[in-house]
Amino acid sequence: MQPKEISLEFGTVYIHENILIAKLNEGILFDLESNQKLLDIGSEVFQNENYAYISHRVNSYAVDPMVYIESASAKNLKAIAVVSENEMTRRNAEEVEKKFYKDNNCFEAFQTLEEAVRWIETRI
Rank of each mutant, 00 (worst) to 15 (best):
V58R: 05
M88G: 05
S55P: 10
L32Q: 10
S73Q: 15
L113E: 12
L29H: 01
W119A: 01
V96S: 11
K75I: 15
E9S: 12
K99W: 03
Y68A: 06
N59L: 02
A79Y: 05
N18M: 01
E70K: 08
Y68L: 15
Q2Y: 12
V45N: 03
G42F: 08
V45K: 04
E94D: 12
T89Y: 07
Y101T: 04
K23R: 14
R123D: 07
S43A: 08
I41K: 02
P65M: 08
E49N: 13
M1Y: 04
V67G: 05
F110H: 03
N50R: 10
C106Y: 13
E97M: 04
R123A: 01
E85Q: 14
A52N: 01
Q111C: 02
K4F: 08
S60V: 06
A22Q: 04
Y14W: 13
N86P: 02
I124T: 15
N59F: 04
W119N: 07
I21A: 00
A52W: 05
C106P: 00
Y61P: 10
F110T: 05
R57H: 11
F46H: 05
E9A: 07
F46K: 05
I15F: 09
E70F: 04
L8H: 02
E17F: 11
V83F: 09
V67P: 06
I41Q: 06
A52C: 09
D40S: 11
N50P: 15
K4N: 12
R57M: 14
R118I: 14
N50Q: 14
E49D: 13
L29D: 08
I19S: 12
V13R: 03
E115N: 03
L39M: 08
A79P: 09
E121R: 14
E115D: 10
S73V: 02
I69L: 11
F10L: 07
R91C: 06
Y101I: 03
E121A: 10
A74R: 06
C106R: 12
E108R: 13
A74G: 00
I6E: 11
K98E: 10
E97A: 05
A109M: 00
D31W: 00
V63T: 13
L24V: 10
V117F: 06
I28L: 07
E49Y: 10
P65N: 11
Y53E: 05
K98I: 04
E115M: 09
A79L: 13
F30H: 06
I15K: 09
F30Y: 15
T12R: 10
Y53A: 08
S71L: 01
R91I: 12
Y101N: 08
K99R: 14
A52R: 00
S43R: 15
N105C: 01
G11Y: 09
F110M: 03
L24P: 01
T89N: 07
I124L: 15
I41H: 04
V13L: 11
C106W: 00
F100Y: 14
K98F: 01
Y14T: 08
E94L: 06
L113D: 03
Y68V: 08
D40E: 14
I124K: 07
K75V: 13
N105V: 00
E115F: 03
E85H: 12
N50K: 13
R123Q: 15
E94I: 01
F30V: 02
I6S: 09
N35D: 09
S84G: 07
Q111A: 02
K99M: 05
L29S: 07
L29A: 04
E95G: 04
N35C: 08
